[in-house]
């Protein structure tokens, strides 16, 4: 029997992209996608199911499908994704329910969790590069950070209680890419980038393709433990703007929300509380552990910015709005189940 994978959060960009790239792997028999809404991209052989926001249905699905690998990709890592209460519901309660379901099954051998380097925070007492064992010097203040830290603590407990399940936790740095909308890309698309007056922190970025390949790499490997995933090079904030050809818009570093309110409220620049923290001290991430494990990045931080700009320019010159794929249930089920569709014979091993 081939491998059977359950992807939770298939409605998120990461979940659907991971499902899409796992579909190419003939050793995987079954891919089941579980999400709170329809997938973001066209999926050929992934069977998609709907769940509510706290994933209470997941236990029944795991029991009945007997999957061997579970991927947890629905953790929200930007505070724009959900309002406060929903964020907790999604990140913390969702993770808790998922872990309870995985722990109760006898079939699951691997669990891959997509987390964020937000757990390290950003403060003046930070080391220049956080490795997987680094402790956070400053206590978490932001709701998004708290929710991810809490979810991660559940994962750590789970890994201890279930030594027969290989748990891989990936901490991703800020993502940039043509298909993903983050606060940074929203700014860069408008050729602006806010910054705090007098500060020029350096950060890592990872290109969206590398995020997906990292998740797929983890699913296909036998890694265990925590891994940082971040593009090579730690690049200053001002340099990111200059690579992207974006204009730096100054925000006052103290009482930012009050003094710079006109810029933020009118939407000239987009900021989130977590970006505000990042803009002061940045965050350095030591990615050697994941590289030593065999993963190779396609894009460095600066290349990720350059690639993003290239594709953004292409989009502008083509004059098209975002070429969005609309998932249509009846069309998909036609391709999957209709006897009229001539399916290619399954290829031998």
């Amino acid at each position: 029997m081939g491998r059977r994978i359950l992807i939770t959060g298939v409605d998120t960009f990461w979940g659907s992209m991971t499902a899409k790239s796992l579909e190419d792997d003939p050793t995987i028999d079954t891919i089941i996608g579980l999400g709170t809404s329809d997938p973001k991209v066209e999926l050929e052989r992934t069977e998609c199911l709907r769940a509510d926001h706290n994933y209470s249905i997941v236990s029944r699905i795991i029991k009945s499908t007997r999957v061997d690998t579970v991927m947890h990709t629905f953790m929200a890592t930007e505070s724009t994704a959900y309002s406060g209460r929903m964020l907790n519901e999604n990140n913390v309660i969702g993770t808790m329910n998922l872990l309870a379901a995985v722990g109760g099954s006898s079939s699951v051998k691997r669990l891959i969790v997509k987390s964020s380097s937000l757990v390290y925070g950003s403060s003046s007492q930070d080391p220049y590069f956080f490795d997987e064992t680094s402790k956070r010097p400053s206590p978490a203040r932001l709701r998004i950070e708290k929710s991810i830290i809490e979810a991660e603590s559940y994962v750590k407990d789970f890994a201890q209680d279930n030594p027969h399940i290989a748990v891989t936790l990936l901490r991703f740095c800020n993502v940039i890419g043509d298909n993903i909308a983050t606060t940074i890309t929203r700014n860069l698309r408008k050729r602006v980038l806010p910054y705090l007056l007098g500060f020029d922190p350096s950060i890592h970025l990872i290109y969206e393709d590398d995020v997906v390949s990292a998740l797929v790499f983890a699913a296909n490997s036998d890694l265990e433990g925590i891994y940082n995933v971040a593009g090579d090079e730690r690049v200053p904030w001002s340099e990111i703007a200059s690579i992207a050809g974006a204009k730096l818009i100054p925000l006052f570093a103290y009482a930012t929300n009050v003094i710079s309110a006109p810029l933020i409220k009118t939407g000239i620049v987009k900021v989130t509380p977590e970006l505000m923290e990042l803009m002061k001290y940045g965050r350095g991430i030591d990615n050697t552990k994941f590289k030593t494990a065999g993963f190779s990045y396609k894009y460095t931080t600066s290349a990720a910015v350059a690639k993003f700009c290239e594709l953004n320019q292409l989009r502008i010159n083509l004059g098209k709005t975002k070429p969005e794929y609309k998932y249509q249930k009846d069309v998909e089920s036609f391709f999957k189940h209709s006897p009229s569709v001539i399916k290619e014979a399954a290829q031998p091993e």
């Binding site: 220049y128 730690r234 200053p236 200059s242 396609k298 894009y299 460095t300 290349a303 990720a304 350059a306």
Partner: peptide
Amino acid sequence: VDKSDKTVGQSFRQSDVDRWG
């Protein structure tokens, strides 16, 4: 495809700020 994608594995750094700033 990777070769025609000139961004792969390249650096587009513009300043000489090293990893310690």
